[in-house]
Amino acid sequence: MTLVATREALAATEPGRAAPFFRRRPDAVASPQVPEDMDAPLLSVRGVSLEYRTLERVVRATHRVDFDVYAADRFVLLGPSGCGKSTLLKAVAGFHRPVEGEIRLGGVPVREPGPDRIVVFQEFDQLPPWKTVAQNVAFPLRAAGIVGRREAEARARHYIDKVGLSRFADSYPHQLSGGMKQRVAIARALATQPKMLLMDEPFAALDALTRRKMQEELLALWDEVRFTLLFVTHSIEEALVVGNRVALLSPHPGRVRSEVNSHDFDLTSIGSRDFQAAVQRLHDRLFDTDPALATAGAR
C-alpha cells in the first residue's frame, strides 16, 4: 500500500502542529466514513473495457482499466480527449455497462445509475430549469426517497449555505451565472450525501478566474465534509491542484499509464518549482508517445 505508506510518512514528518498541512492530508482518520478495513477501496475498477457504438463501427473507449479509490480520496482521471475518461466516469455512474471487467462500489457491483453516486456534469443544463435553487438541491433527496420533505428542505438550505448561495435559494437556474450553477450542482450532490461524488470536467465551461475560485471552494468543502471524489479533467494543473492522486490515461483506447500522488499541491503551490516540475513530468508522459501512437491519436 504505497498510498497508505506515504500518508504515514507524511504524518510522521509533521507531528500534528502544522494545521494547514493536515488540511492537505487525505487521510481517512479524520473522515466519519472511514471503512474498518483500510485495505478495502471504496471504489474498485478492475479490468474495465468500455465500448460505444456509432452507426458504422464499434469503438473501444477504454481497455482493461484498473484503479482504486479509497474513502476521502480526491482521485483524478487525467488524459487528452479521446482517452475515455468521461466514458469511464459515466460507467462508474452506471450509465454505461462495461463489456468486460467490473466496477464495484463498497463491494457491490455497479449496475445502474443511482443516488449513491451523484454526478456533477460539465454542462449547465444538468439543473432542471423548472426548479428553484432550493428545490433543485432537494430534488434528488425527494426523488430517491432518501428523506422526508422537511428534512430535505433543511438539508438543501444547509448545503446551499455551504456553497455561499443562500441569497439565491429562490432563484431559478437561468438567473444564475455559470459558476453559480456549478455551485448549485455541487450543493445538490453533497446534500444527497452520496458514497461518491463524480465530477465530469465540472469547471471546464467556466472562465479562468471563476474556475480558480471554484477549485479553491471545492478543496475547502472537501476539507470540511471529506467526501470521496472522482474527478475528470484534461488540465494538468487542475489535476494536481484538485486531486490527491492522479491517474494518467493514454488515448485510443484509454489505458492507465501511471498513477501519481499530488497531495502536496494546492492552489498556493502553483508557481512553485516542485509544482512546475510535476506539471512538466505529467506533460512529458502525456505527449512522449512513440510516433505510431501519436499519429493514431491525431486521427
Binding site: F95, P113, P115, F121, E123, Q126, P128, P129
Partner: peptide, 25 residues
C-alpha cells in the same frame, strides 16, 4: 441528454421519470 442523465442519476425511472423530468422539460 444531461438532464435525462441527471434524472436517472437521482434514481428516477418509469412513470416518475416521465412526470418529473420529461414532461416539465
Amino acid at each position: 441528454d444531461t438532464l435525462r442523465m441527471a434524472g436517472r442519476n437521482y434514481g428516477l425511472k418509469g412513470l416518475p421519470y416521465v412526470q418529473q423530468i420529461l414532461i416539465p422539460a
